[in-house]
């Protein structure tokens, strides 16, 4: 009852497939570790947001760091995207996706912040009057 049916795939790993888990126990253990880590990171996020553990203006940055850590936990323990050589294709696709996500997010925020900075408040008022 091996989860990997074909002897064909000695050099590839499907996203979602786990390499090591041949027994039920080790598979469940993987998901359990991921679940505990995810719960822990979530709890810390909610705690940090409502406490003054972090320096006020730094809370947002801390929360983003925690979220990225939790996404990593999900990727590794739930989606089984790992650094093993058999998973190279999956990781490369992920890297490209992350690049595009970064460009979309950073580019939008940068351009829009720049526009908001360059449009003076009285100009904004004029534009709103023209529209109204």
């Amino acid at each position: 009852m091996s989860p990997h049916p074909a002897p064909l795939d000695q050099h590839d790993l499907a996203p979602g497939d786990e390499q090591i888990s041949e027994t039920i126990a080790s598979g469940v253990r993987g998901y359990l570790v991921g679940f505990i880590l995810a719960v822990l990171l979530t709890a810390i996020s909610f705690y940090v947001a409502k406490s003054d553990l972090l320096w006020g203006p730094g809370i947002a940055m801390g929360l983003v760091v925690l979220a990225i850590a939790q996404m990593g936990v999900h990727l590794v323990f739930f989606l089984h995207i790992t650094t093993s050589p058999d998973s190279t294709n999956n990781v490369l696709a992920l890297a490209f996706g992350v690049l595009i996500v970064f460009l979309v997010l950073a580019g939008s925020l940068w351009i829009m912040a720049n526009l908001a900075h360059n449009v003076m408040p009285d100009q904004m008022q004029q534009m709103m009057n023209m529209q109204g």
């Binding site: 049916p5 074909a6 064909l8 795939d9 000695q10 050099h11 590839d12 499907a14 497939d17």
Partner: peptide, 8 residues
């Protein structure tokens, strides 16, 4: 190693 299985 040849073509991947359909699963992959």
């Amino acid at each position: 190693g040849g073509p991947a299985s359909k699963r992959i």
